[in-house]
Every structure is written in C-alpha cells, then in structure tokens.
C-alpha cells in the first residue's frame, strides 16, 4: 500500500483536512496574465460613490436584452437602504471561472479582446449547471431562450460604466477584479451586525 494513501487513511478515517475553500497550492507556473503580472481592464466599483440610482441596471438590461427590465440586468445593485450603502455587483471575471469549467459542452470560453468569460449562445444547451456552479450568483438564465447569460463587459465598452452618473462604476485597469469588494462588504457586515441585533449602527 502506498505510503501516501496509508497516511490519509490513518488520519481518523478522513481523507484530508478540511479547507475553507479552494486553496492556491504550489502555483509554480501561471498563465500569461499572471506570469507577466499584467494589468487587465475590468469593472472597478467605488461603493462610496454609488447612490443606488439603478441606472446601471436599466442600461444593462437595455443593451443586453433590448428591454428596460432591471430583473434581466446582469448587474445588480445591492441596496442597504438602512445605512444608505449601495454597490453594484456583477461577474468579477474570476480566475477559477466555475461557470466555464462546469459547462458540459464547452459553451463558455474566454473572449480574447477583453479576457472576460462569455457564453456562446449557439453552443449553450440550457442545462442550467453554470447557474448553480457560479458561487457568486452572477450567471443567469434567459427564460425565453433557455440559455445561460452573464456579463460580457459589453465587448469592452460596458454600458453600466458609461451610464453611471457618479463614476461609481469605472472600467479601468486592475490586477484583480473585486479588490474593492472586501472593504465594502466588511463595512456593510459591521454596520449590519449591529442593525441585526437591533442596535443603531455605528456609522
């Protein structure tokens, strides 16, 4: 019996110690962008500037679906009215690309010009797997075509950023889409922890 296997079996019958989430392990080589540490253009959100006006949702639904239906927008504003805190939220074009790896027919690929993950509508069979595989909740189903849809950065000219009146959404270079997210979410969590307890929030 291989030593490694014996080790795993010996550890209390469990195969491995649990991890909180996928870990970066032994990243000896990386793909082109990572290797060169290149900047790529991405949607950067400045939550402090968002007023919750929802123009991005209207613009997105219009340019992506031809209707003014915020319910079909691919960007969604998170509204925390009780603390006047808002932030638009859409696909972060994450490195793991759970939607892309999950697809059984390789209908999700990477657009060369922008680096974003895109659904090829002609390839999507409508199995819905990507909508449950994406742990960010940013892949949707278009009801009348029964195909998956997600943010494609409007091919490099995102309408949400174009329309945002306060520059809360900007399409600029960055290293990791979503850098803005943690500080904002932590602030929301802190404010809300007290709100949930019934106490007035701190700021």
């Amino acid at each position: 019996m291989a030593a490694q296997w014996a080790h795993h079996r010996a550890a209390g019958g469990r195969l491995l110690p649990r991890m909180e989430t996928f870990a970066i392990v032994n990243a000896t080589t990386v793909n082109a962008r990572w290797e060169k540490n290149e900047m790529a253009k991405m949607l950067n959100i400045v939550p402090e500037k968002c007023t919750g006006c929802m123009q991005c949702e209207l613009a997105c639904s219009w340019v992506q679906t031809g209707t003014f239906q915020p319910s079909r927008s691919l960007i969604r504003v998170n509204v925390f009215d009780e603390e006047a805190s808002y932030a638009p939220y859409t696909c972060l074009q994450c490195d793991e690309a759970w939607c892309m790896t999950a697809c059984p027919v390789n209908a999700i690929g990477v657009d060369e010009a922008t680096g974003c993950k895109v659904v090829s509508e002609s390839l999507c069979v409508g199995c819905h797997l990507c909508t449950i595989a994406c742990p960010f909740g940013t892949v949707f189903t278009t009801p009348h075509t029964d195909t998956a849809t997600k943010c494609n950065l409007c091919g490099g000219e995102p309408a949400c950023a174009t329309t945002c009146p306060t520059d809360a959404i900007v399409y600029t270079e960055g290293k990791q889409s979503g850098d803005w997210f943690a500080p904002w979410a932590q602030k929301v969590a802190a404010n809300h922890a007290s709100a949930l307890d019934g106490a007035p929030s701190a700021n």
């Binding site: 990243a27 490195d95 892309m100 990791q176």
Partner: peptide, 14 residues
C-alpha cells in the same frame, strides 16, 4: 464573495 475571489483549484486561473 471575498472569500472566493482569487481562489483557484489548481493554483492558476482556469
């Protein structure tokens, strides 16, 4: 969400 950003299965972007 912030727990998921930047984490990958194989140590590099898929």
């Amino acid at each position: 969400a912030q727990k998921l950003i930047g984490t990958t299965l194989t140590g590099r972007p898929a």
